[in-house]
Design a protein around this nucleic acid. Structure first.
Length: 452
DNA sequence: TGAAATGTTGGGGCG
DNA sequence: ACGCCCCAACATTTC
């Protein structure tokens, strides 16, 4: 009689409902992580994300060991691994926390069906969201498509359960099943490009809480203003921790306290909820525009322009700085994400899917729900999206949000000696003219509207 | 979580 | 003192 605890994107011991339920059950627990890119459909984790996962799994194993347990690692399709392990460990129950990506939902549903078919007590829980996507519907019983009413609804209804404490001991089975070694999962890249990432991040639950505590104490008060300044440490830096479930939104809600609950930061957390809401109800939007008329948008695909954008060689300072920051560190400041995305989709007329794919492969916080919502938002093709004619001017944006040019200077060494006055002006033969390409984008939009 | 074009207002220089 | 013009500053409209 054991309980199998299947870790997914909930790599934490605090406020973990599946773990809590497993402990309540009172039987020995076998904690398990299954590395299974095959179960992720078209979106297996990219290199930056795998780097994070490697370290987060090690951290999880260590904190399990502090409680008399350990993490079993396996590789293969989750359904098969679970079924095999149930037999080997004589497990009578399998618990896990839900995921909401299309492929992950299918994987979970399949596992549940298979296990229950064999008389196993299979049960899933919510660790990742303040509100279950299927429980939040508008007056006419449909999913929300606009953020503001969704936000109002959530703020009105919200009373998250008290957070669960981490168990001090986790009962071990008499014998442990075989585990793959962390190294054998081959999550780390062969070329060691991640030294900057190692400096910037501490994957794992402890790192998540350090970051959260530091943010609440030092950064939250100025969040609304400071988060817009890429040269300032004004954001929470919690996105990868949230993605891997090293900390959850319920915990942040409680940590914020009554005053923080009217904060811009909570609204950002609820944008994340909204992204999951949309992905759940419109799973096809990872690759297809939510607004169908955008199926006919006249993109001007160019491998050359795409590559220049990816490498940060566009000749537009804010764009190049952002893309190089991404490549070096696995993150990009959020304000700059909007700028580079607008530039790719509008000034270069490249399909937003290309940008989404690149972000997916390079971001350490790559998250299918957030990535999909944000790219569709920029492209104008999504729910509550920016109107297509909102074209960011990277020069103006730079002057507004990086007024001293410090951010550009940090990532574009060619401009190290440029004055604050001139630093945001296109340099070294920009690949497009901002004014003309803006006009071309508006024309393309008008063309689409005519066809639709 | 835009930018640019266009419109309006009001202070100040000037004949 | 007055009308005229210029132009910054702000507001509104348009894409």
């Amino acid at each position: 009689m054991t309980t199998l605890l299947w870790f997914r994107q909930d790599l934490r011991l605090r406020d973990n409902p599946a773990l809590h339920a497993a402990v309540q059950r009172g039987e020995p627990i076998v904690p398990l992580y299954v590395w299974s890119p095959e179960d992720e459909g078209a979106w297996p984790p990219g290199a930056a994300s795998r780097w994070w996962l490697h370290h987060s799994l090690r951290a999880l194993d260590e904190s399990l060991r502090e409680r008399g347990s350990r993490l079993i690692l396996a590789r293969g399709r989750a359904k098969a691994v679970l079924a095999g392990l149930v037999e080997r460990t004589h497990a009578t129950a399998v618990f896990w926390n839900r995921r909401y990506e299309p492929a992950a939902r299918e994987c979970g549903a399949l596992a549940k069906q298979t296990l229950r078919g064999r008389g196993i007590h299979a049960e899933s829980f919510n660790s990742a969201l303040l509100a279950e996507p299927h429980e939040v519907l508008n007056q006419s019983g449909k999913p929300y498509r606009v953020y503001t009413p969704y936000l109002r609804r959530l703020l009105h209804d919200l009373e998250p359960a008290k957070t669960l404490v981490a168990p001090s001991q986790i009962a071990a089975p008499k014998s442990w099943p075989d585990s793959a070694s962390l190294e054998s999962l081959d999550l780390l890249p062969r070329i060691k490009w991640y030294t900057l990432m190692e400096k910037a991040w501490s994957p794992g639950e402890a790192g998540a809480h350090r970051r959260s505590n530091g943010f609440m104490k030092n950064t939250l008060a100025d969040y609304r203003q400071a988060r817009e300044r890429p040269a300032v440490r004004g954001t929470s830096g919690l996105s990868p921790h949230l993605h891997f479930g090293e900390i959850g939104p319920r915990q942040l809600w409680h940590a914020l306290g009554p005053k923080g609950r009217s904060s811009t930061f909570l609204q950002e957390i609820i944008w994340r909820e909204f992204a999951y809401h949309l992905l759940y109800h419109f799973p096809e939007t990872t690759t297809r525009p939510l607004r169908p008329q955008f199926e006919h948008f006249p993109w001007k695909k160019s491998a050359k322009h795409l590559r220049a954008w990816q490498r940060g060689e566009t000749g537009v300072p804010m764009v190049d700085a952002g893309m190089r920051e991404l490549w070096a560190t696995g993150v990009m400041h959020n304000r700059v994400r909007m700028i580079v995305a607008s530039f790719l989709v509008k000034n270069l007329l490249q399909p937003w899917q290309q940008g989404a794919r690149w972000f997916w492969d390079t971001l350490v916080d790559a998250d299918l729900a957030n990535n999909t919502l944000n790219w569709q938002w920029v492209a104008g093709s999504g729910a509550d999206a920016a109107p297509y004619f909102r074209v960011f001017n990277p020069v103006t944006q730079g002057e507004k949000f990086d007024p001293d040019g410090d951010y550009v200077r940090q990532w574009v060494p060619e401009l190290a000696d440029a004055s604050a006055r001139a630093i945001h002006e296109p340099y070294a033969g920009p690949i497009v003219d901002l004014k003309h390409s803006r006009e071309a984008a508006l024309e393309a939009y008008a063309q689409m509207r005519q066809r639709g």
